[in-house]
Amino acid sequence: SKPNNQLSAGRPSISNPGMGEPGNFSGNNFMPANGLTMVQNQVLNLIKACPRPEGLNFQDLRNQLQHMPVASIKQAVDFLCNEGHIYSTVDDDHFKSTDAE
């Protein structure tokens, strides 16, 4: 049998050296910091960071999260909508955050 290397968690942790986001993501999908998964957190942070009054559109979200499958992003957006963290604005492709901290 093959020896497993010690990091046998389901998903390799992704390091983002380019991202100046202060909120630290523990690379684990199953380790929520505030009840959200890493994907959901990243989506929420991007939406929060958008200064435009109509919010961030889904295309931008995809462009900024290119390492993620579109389905995951969509899922995260749906979840955040359901929870009330974000809402759609001018159309179903633009989102703003409700968390105004």
């Binding site: 009330g84 963290h85 974000i86 809402y87 001018v90 409700t98």
Partner: peptide, 20 residues
Amino acid sequence: LVRIQRNKAAALLRLAARNV
């Protein structure tokens, strides 16, 4: 734009409901 207001209100309600 009424839609935006309504969506926002609905979202805030959901969020509030979660935080109770």
